[in-house]
Design a protein around this nucleic acid. Sequence first.
RNA 1: GGCCCAGUAGUUCAGUUGGUUUAGAACGCCAGCCUGUCACGUUGGAGGUCGAGGGUUCGAAUCCCUUCUGGGUCGCCA
Length: 590
Amino acid sequence: MNEKNKRTHYCGQLSESNVGEEVVLMGWVQTRRDLGGIIFVDIRDRSGICQVVINPDRLEAFKKAEEIRSEYVIAIKGRVCLRPEENVNPKISTGFVEVLCEGLDILSRSKTPPFPIEDNINVDESVRLKYRYLDLRRPKMLNNILFRSRVNKAIRDFLSENGFIEVETPMLTRSTPEGARDYLVPSRVNPGCFYALPQSPQLFKQLLMVSGLERYYQIARCFRDEDLRADRQPEFTQLDIEMSFVDVDDIIELNEKLIKYIVEQATQRKVDIPFRRLTYKEAMDRFGSDKPDLRFGMEMVEVSDIASKSEFKVFTDAVKGGGIVKGINIEKGGEIFSRRQIDELVEKAKEFGAKGLAWISISPEGVKSPIAKFFAEDTMNELLQRMNAKTGDLLIFISDKEKSNALSLMGQMRLYLGKTLGLLKKDAMEFVWVTEFPLLEYDEEEKRFVAMHHPFTSPMDEDIPLLETDPISVRAKAYDIVLNGTELGGGSIRIHSSMIQQKMFKVLGFTEERAKSNFGFLLQAFEYGTPPHGGIAYGLDRMVMLLLGLDSIRDCIAFPKTQNAMCLMTGAPAEVEDRQLRELHIQVKI
RNA sequence: GGCCCAGUAGUUCAGUUGGUUUAGAACGCCAGCCUGUCACGUUGGAGGUCGAGGGUUCGAAUCCCUUCUGGGUCGCCA
């Protein structure tokens, strides 16, 4: 056959309706089954797989078919035939038909691939990463990339439809303090000076609001030179959004619609809006986490007041010391967990860092508990009532002199129990907004306040006076969107007054000179008429990972890096020539 | 930076406890046979720096030290 033949169909699209048609297919050889007198070839392209039959009466094609191997790229011309009933292959979508080969061209040969091009392979990830271009041929990986493209399209369609302007911001920008470690790029024309790759387009998008764009978005690559994890890459993608003349509710409402649109366009699932909302304080008090997993209940109950009436020194001391006692009712837990398993729970709590775990089992014969003897009967009854305890339940308690410790420890126990008891349904999607985050947290190492979100986050109006008197209790107009216990994105209303911005820098311990030298351009811009504005940024890789149910972010990134931030395919990072270093005025010391 | 797990054929693994064989298996690969396979079948064959370096020993895949690589995790990630 002539190589100039045009492809007429995709392999995976052939069906009974094509029977009798003359087609040209092009693709990769999935497998060749050479029976001696007849050869079957499965040909694969982006769309799927189709069987080609090569008979010896087409001698030229048959000879070539004897030569082909896995992953050769071939073109075949032939007629689509219905398979005899007994030869139908129900495992592939094109299994009712096959193509009777009339001509075959080998377009390109292939070495034997290091691993088979198919789903469900058991191959070390480093091998897949080295041959990423082959890994991406596997249907699952291809599907992930396709899915991601659909998400991107949904984002662009929705935001464009809602008046957002896509703007690209610089990749070569200046290093700013706070936040993650920067990736630096030396400047050839400015000896001794460095650009930083952006950790996010934060300042630029705010400046675009000053510019009057009003609604901006970008699918932006961001860089952070920190250690990697299954859900963290040194370069990653944010969906970055910013809007003018809005408040928290406007942003939340728009983003609910956006998320609904993305999920419903890219998957078969339905999303109900509005989402639930919890303040940071509620989330911590009830779930012990600022990203609560709401796929199950098992809420934490405050019992400090009752516990302090007991004789149990651990509890009373904790409360006296300003701490708290939190309980969880594991419904039917007394029936589910054996005595030994309860001991394992106690061990687990210690693993998380708790000093201990108190428990009360409500058996039909009465209360069983190592701490029961410290409780008067009516105090115990009050406790059981507060915990809504019924026969068969198991109550667990954690106390700590540090309130936040008790909360987060109990939060970890709650998650652990949810996992152990199989309550984390994989197909459930529980979105929740967490709002009113603290503006600041105290950095013990640096002995100063640092911004919890970033230094441009607006305090809540009613808390502004506290900035000077009680900074740690100031709440911010900041919010996170959480899905099944994972943070999808977060944002805030920004400070648009240079006066408050300067106050903020002061609380953060910036001298006026330092604020000016680092953020002078922003402060200056704010002196020229700044609209109230705010926005949000999503971790797009993570979102795609979650929607696809993947365990690693790497599986939805075409060319990801390893835990050592290396690319096994290209070998980056690598040493460079001395000449390059000289041009950059750089001397390497190792 | 800390802790944990893993590096043996192209791939996935066994062998390491307790020192000694020609270092095995499966899949893949190569060759022959095979006209309805789709995990094709069948016969035969090739394929190893046991991650690297050093040490102990008569003798090391196996024990010791160092190091590299991959993964997980804590710190870190405004």
